[in-house]
Design a protein around this nucleic acid. Sequence first.
DNA 1: TATTGTTATACTCTATAACTATA
DNA 2: TATAGTTATAGAGTATAACAATA
Lengths: 155, 155
Amino acid sequence: MRAPENEPAEPVAAVEPDLAGEIEFLTVRAAASGTRLARARLRPLGLNVRSYSVLALAGSGDGWSQRAIAAYLDLDPSQVVSLVDELEAKGLLTREVDAADRRARRVRATPAGTDLLVHARQAAAEAEDEALAALAPEERAVLLRLLRRIVFAED
Amino acid sequence: MRAPENEPAEPVAAVEPDLAGEIEFLTVRAAASGTRLARARLRPLGLNVRSYSVLALAGSGDGWSQRAIAAYLDLDPSQVVSLVDELEAKGLLTREVDAADRRARRVRATPAGTDLLVHARQAAAEAEDEALAALAPEERAVLLRLLRRIVFAED
DNA sequence: TATTGTTATACTCTATAACTATA
DNA sequence: TATAGTTATAGAGTATAACAATA
């Protein structure tokens, strides 16, 4: 699967493929396979990757606004609405008007949501471990640091 | 954008968010923003990220089969059909029956496709450079090597 | 029997625009 | 005038199943 069987013995290409040398290409592939693994393990819990992410935020802090969730997850605020709707309908989180700013809604996990989150985090961790099986712990730490730099432009 | 404005002063969470510590989460975010940058730069050329990838393979080697393209790009073979259809209709590549295996089609870039590919590769390189602006060249090399290990399970 | 390409379908994810209620 | 949430819609990406031609 990693290489085509029909690579020519003597290349005559005017342009080399070199996609394997493009970080963008590899990042997209890594993200896709990681998402696939995570999705498979979260499905039995009734979650997908995005609803898991929202639930994880709802289960932390003291009530995220939907705007803050959208910013943190790099989603459009309109996408957060349906994710929160879905989780609220399942009784996994609550959405309450913020007394200090009545435009905003504070999203918090319910006890049931917190319980599910424990299992979901375990599932996500297993998926990550499987996706990164080729890397030693120190290498994973390096990767984590580099990705943080890209995503949050920090360090 | 990187952090919510309403992080509590004194956290009371039963479960920490910690998504920023999950490589899966960061990889998906990095892939999404990289794709966004690449898409914006490829659009004026009439390409999206996936049609660019297929064209890049068609412009290299001596005629990839659609099956090999699917395996290399981690796409379902049925998805390759419509991508090749689209590029063929634009005259950017040809699809010919393989004489040695009449089930297979050999996909090759036309001169017009090769010309466009030169500009598309430049556009992709610019998008990558923008996406990785936070990293020094040596760090990009490290990232590249780690991603290759994950995606191709090699090294 | 197995594989290549194909068609079809449904679902998930992403991008935009417009609207409402509050500030 | 700007911001938080909402609704609606369209497009891109992904997953599956079934089929014809060929091996």
